[in-house]
Each structure stands twice: as C-alpha cells, then as structure tokens.
Amino acid sequence: MSPGAPLAAGAAGPMTPEPLRVRSLRRETADTWTVSLDVSRRPGGFPFQPGQFNMLYVFGVGEVAISISGDPGRPAELLHTVRTVGAATHALRGIGRGGTLGVRGPYGRPWPMEEARGQDVVVVAGGLGLAPLRPAILHLLRHRAEYGRVSVLVGARTPEDLPFRRELARWQEDSRLRVLVTVDKASPGWTEHVGVVPALLSDVEVDPARTVALMCGPEVMMRFTVRELERRGVPDARIHLSLERNMKCAVGFCGHCQLVPYFVCKDGPVFPYEKLRPFINLREV
C-alpha cells in the first residue's frame, strides 16, 4: 500500500512545511485538543490513509509528529488530536483559532484496511492511541458491509482522560460496532469497566482464523494485549501495532526513530507484530 503523495516532495524539499490556518480547536480532555486545519485552498483537500501522521510546525518553536485523527473519507477536513506534553505541543495549543501551523505529510505506513477486508476487526486503543485509530474506525463504519464483526476496545487513565467521549458514546449506541471502554481509575458514578484493556478482550468473541487487530497505545499496554490475543490464537502477522519513537524528519533521513532494522517513520508507524517480535521486548532498542 503506498502512502499518499507527500505534499512537500517538490523543489521545496521534504523538510519544508506548508502553512495552514487553524479553523477550530475542540477540547477533548484537560490536556488534549483536536485541531482542525483549513485545507480549503488545497485542491482535493488533504487526502490521507488511516494511521498516517503529519509533522506539525509551530513558528519558531519546532515540529512534532502528530497522527491524523480525522475521517479519511472527508479529505476537506484535516484533524489532529494533540496532547500538550512538551514545548512544541504546548506552543501548538497556544496557536488558537485563526493562527497558522506548518504542516508536512502525510507520512508513514497506514493501517492495513485492505488486508482486513472481509475479516473481523478488533480495534484496541489506549489513551490518545485512539487518535490514529479514529480514522480506521470511521473507515470501517463507512465501508461497514465489507468487514465482519468490528469491536472497539478503549482504555484510559480516568473517565475524564477519554478523548472523543461524545463520539464514543454514539459508537456505543451504534449496532454496527461493539464498543467497550475501561479506565484504570474510576471516579464515583462511572458505570463502564474498571481495569486494563486486555481484560476487555474476554468480552469479545475472537475467531483467530478471521481476526485482524489494530492497536495503538502505550507500548506496555500493547505488549500485554498482544499476549492476550496470542492466548486467543490470533497469529502475530495479523496483530498490527502503531509505535511511537522520536521522529524528527519523518522521511528516513535523521535516524532518530530507529527500532533495530526499522525506521518507525517510514517502515511504520504501523507494524505487524511478527516484524516486531524479535525486538519489542528488548530494553533500549
């Protein structure tokens, strides 16, 4: 599957961002925002594939790799969901409506939506890991008849830390999806699950012969979930993980995001577990 044509591949060079205006900002959680960028001046909008990311540039501050969290079927809208954790993401949050961000992308290997066609799909999201999976879920809903059972398992620290909460509630009402939500720490009144994401798997019917798992979240959470899926007999070629590493250039030049043989930016960020198995449990790779 070839990624969408990068927007800055011309004479300007792959490291040059394109300025785009912030159309709106929506608060997801105390520290997480969804930023909508105006792509109305670009012919065809901003096409991308589920699981791809962009490099977002804040004037004079720096650049950060952020997953595209919008609907791949609606390229006229470009969404990123950003958690304010460092200098660039704080500055990004400070831009505000009407401000301008630099964008280059889309980059990276997407979720295997083609390969998953005709299969049951188990989507496993931890925390903001839901952001790169949201385009996959929207794709599945748009092409619902082409897939088997679709389960979405979502974990977060607390109920207040769940991104896309209203949409999650809508999905829970949607008979085309089975959506289970769990938190590590519940507040009083919480009536969904309390506990870790892998525990939700026991509530999902998994037919190992026809299940594809798409997973994004903290690496430890993913390792535990992979183990649970393996117990259920899902082959590791069909368990797909989206990894996070230090991505500076996103085009395979800078060397920062290496994971032994891979450049996470261009060989990933989505990998089948069979490719990660030899390395993922090692320290400091």
Partner: peptide
C-alpha cells in the same frame, strides 16, 4: 499493568 499507570503524561 494497571498499577503502571501507563497513560500518565511522561509515564
């Protein structure tokens, strides 16, 4: 896993 608090910022 639960006590690792994996979703904490910087965890």
């Amino acid at each position: 896993l639960q006590r690792l608090d994996v979703y904490k910022a910087g965890a």
